[in-house]
Amino acid sequence: MPDPLFVFIAALTLGACCLLVASRNPVTSAMGMILALVGIAAEFFLLDAYFLGVLQVLVYAGAVMVLFLFIIMLLDVQPPGGAYPWKRALAGGAAFLLLSAAAFALLAPEGSLAKAAGPTPPELAANPESYATAAKAFGRSLYTKYMLPLQMAGLLLLLALVGVVTLAKAPKSAD
């Protein structure tokens, strides 16, 4: 029997996700997304991964989603009129369920999911908790063992930033 708190939070998160994809009101979708992100942070807390949970709330729920909501409100996006497209929504949901079930069936047997994730680093195997809970241990492993992925992620973000600046710059020929 799983932890009742886990079941409650998981149900809440999944419900919020359904709200996010099914709602026609963009503000409701954004609220659903915020609730889902906070729910995932709560699951991190249940796993004792406090640092990850806090970052999840701080970065996504507290900052990124504020921008989302800000843009939605500023542009005053109206929900589309007409009847709700039940058939399309149900077909989309069914297709998604089928795909994930197929992926699960392909990857789950014989621990192939764990194989795909690569071998467990020895420090992590020796003391699995310190990586998840203490911010300092987390930072140390991030800046030593996982330095290359971290730099790649940083480069990706920089590229996105440059791309946005290029796109947002008004073309000179327009005026």
Binding site: M31, Y50, F51, L58, A61, V66, L69, M73, T133, A135
Partner: peptide
């Protein structure tokens, strides 16, 4: 937890939704 400060920043930053939603 031992990430107390960050947790306080994180949760108090959620207060902005009250203002945003109230006004909208």
């Amino acid at each position: 937890a031992d990430v107390g400060v960050l947790l306080m920043f994180a949760v108090s930053s959620l207060g902005v939704y009250g203002i945003a939603l109230g006004g909208w």
